[in-house]
């Protein structure tokens, strides 16, 4: 038993190796944070824009939005990344690993966020629209000032979950050699001949995402209000 525990500690919690490879993991941390922030900003903004556009109920536009959303919700994010990174160069649209990962995950997050926000818009009672329109507010103003603020608040919990799930997908960037945490950790592990860098990577994910989860919970309570 003692021998087994020692070997485990040597393999996964090796202080010497950890100290040696920490800087490389840290580089990966910055890349992960950068891609994540870009994905959250782009994905949520695009999702909100699509949900708002869908509220206007132009038939052709809505069909296009639904098609986009259904396809991107059905495809594994990894497949989207691979398509963008390996296929688009044939169309003379080469993109960096960063761009491919950011764009793929943003589109996926946008698709999910659109569905969540659209559900929120539908959940706002019809009387809210009617009250606002009866005071002379136009469709856009009603959507912007009355309906969306309520829809967004109602949908904070599912959005937070989805944001966390998709941003963790930045790890998928490792397949196109984006130098984020997983990619850095696994190359460090093979160079060191010891899996401790993977432990460091796991710790890095906890350090990044536990605060996000806590922040998400705070936002949920902050924006919850009695109806």
């Amino acid at each position: 038993m003692d021998n087994g525990l020692e070997r485990l500690v040597f393999a996964f919690f090796n202080a010497e190796i950890a100290a040696e490879w920490a800087p490389k993991i840290l580089e990966g941390v910055w890349v992960t944070i950068l891609v994540s922030l870009a994905v959250v900003a782009t994905g949520l903004a695009l999702g909100l824009a699509l949900a708002a556009l869908r509220a206007y109920r132009f038939r052709a536009v809505n069909a296009a939005i639904v098609a986009f959303v259904d396809i991107l919700r059905a495809l594994p994010p990894l497949v989207v990344i691979i398509i963008l990174f390996f296929a688009f160069p044939y169309l003379d649209l080469p993109m960096s690993a960063f761009t491919a990962t950011w764009l793929s995950l943003s589109l996926v997050l946008a698709a999910f966020a659109e569905e969540i926000w659209w559900a929120g818009i539908l959940a706002v009672p019809r009387g809210q629209w009617e009250a606002a329109r009866s005071t002379g507010l136009g469709f856009g103003a009603t959507l912007g000032y009355v309906v969306l603020p309520q829809a967004v608040r109602m949908t904070v919990p599912p959005l937070v979950n989805r944001v966390i799930a998709v941003t963790k997908g930045t790890a998928l960037g490792s397949v196109v050699a984006l130098s984020e945490i997983v990619s850095q950790a696994s190359s460090a592990a093979s160079l060191a001949g010891n899996p401790t860098p993977l432990t460091l990577g796991a710790a890095a994910y906890l350090a990044i995402f536990v605060p996000v989860v806590v922040l998400g919970r705070w936002i949920e309570t902050r924006f919850a209000w009695k109806r």
Binding site: P125, G127, Q128, A131, A132, Q150, W225
Partner: peptide, 10 residues
């Protein structure tokens, strides 16, 4: 003026 008030809750 509406039966269910329809005030903006936010």
């Amino acid at each position: 003026v509406f039966q269910s008030f329809n005030l903006y809750p936010h």
